[in-house]
């Protein structure tokens, strides 16, 4: 567990912007929540892209299923 001081310690990110660890993790959580709100159709598109990426990495398209829906 991080103490309060660590949570509030500033981190310098791009363009010299500073955020705290707490803000960083809050933003990450917010990002995941926004992804969860994407339309179902959009999520299915992302899923098929994920299947393609995994198949590409494994190099074994016979065993790795890619939904053939587009």
């Amino acid at each position: 567990m991080l103490n309060e001081e660590s949570k509030e310690k500033k981190i310098i990110i791009v363009e010299n912007r500073a955020i705290t660890r707490r803000e960083l993790f809050e933003r990450k959580e917010q990002f995941h929540k926004e992804q969860a709100k994407l339309p179902f159709e959009e999520k299915i598109k992302i899923l098929v892209n994920m299947q393609k990426i995994v198949s590409g990495i494994k190099g074994d398209s016979e065993k790795t299923m890619i939904w053939k829906i587009y």
Partner: peptide, 12 residues
């Protein structure tokens, strides 16, 4: 689950 949460890999 995908309907309610962020995208993740699944096959069936």
């Amino acid at each position: 689950a995908l309907f309610y949460i962020e995208p993740f890999l699944t096959y069936d």
